[in-house]
Amino acid sequence: MTKKIGYTTGVYDLFHIGHLNVLKRARLECDYLIVGVTTDELCESRKGKRPIIPFVERMEIVEHIDFVDEVVPQVNMDKMEAWRNLKFDKMFVGDDWKGSEKWNQMEKEFAAVGVEIVYFPYTSHTSSTKLREVLNKFLEES
């Protein structure tokens, strides 16, 4: 039996229970879990802001989670390039992307190379964006 390699990515800024749950659930679906942590530069170019927690520290946080087997930098959004480099069998993505034109196309491209895309529910009650908003409000008041 060959081992199933899983892959997921994220910024993992202000690491919270939603992040932990996604990683834990992903690991249940594969034998070896690779996690791509988005660099500060990629995050800034995509979202217009730098993460609060620096990249090196976010990498270290994710590396110390028992059920994460390998952590790699995510330097661009090219998931096929990641697949060519890492050869994963499953990719885990938040269900907020499911059904979008981009991800429908990605499903077709990945199916052609034997990769299954697995969607997980987005944790709406806790998010780094919400935590950032609360933190900014607190800092403005103090």
Rank of each mutant, 00 (worst) to 15 (best):
K108I: 14
K137T: 07
E140A: 15
S124A: 11
S100V: 02
R58F: 01
P121C: 05
E141F: 04
V71G: 00
D95C: 06
D95G: 06
K98S: 06
V11R: 01
S45E: 13
R46Q: 11
M106N: 12
V37A: 01
V113I: 15
K87I: 03
K47V: 04
N136G: 04
C43E: 10
E81N: 13
N21V: 03
K102V: 13
D31R: 01
V56P: 02
K24P: 02
R84Q: 14
V71M: 02
V68Q: 05
N136S: 09
H19D: 01
I52L: 13
Y119F: 15
E141M: 09
E44K: 15
G10T: 06
R25T: 15
G6D: 00
F110V: 02
Y122R: 13
T126A: 14
T123I: 04
S128L: 04
N136T: 10
S142Q: 15
E29L: 13
E57W: 02
K130D: 15
M77T: 13
V72F: 03
F120Y: 15
I5H: 03
D96Q: 05
P73C: 10
E109N: 13
R46M: 10
E44Y: 15
N104P: 02
I52G: 01
R84D: 10
C30I: 08
H64E: 09
T8C: 13
W103T: 08
K24I: 02
S124Y: 13
E109Q: 15
M59W: 01
M80N: 06
L20S: 07
K24Q: 09
T38A: 14
M80W: 05
R46Y: 05
R50Q: 11
K3M: 10
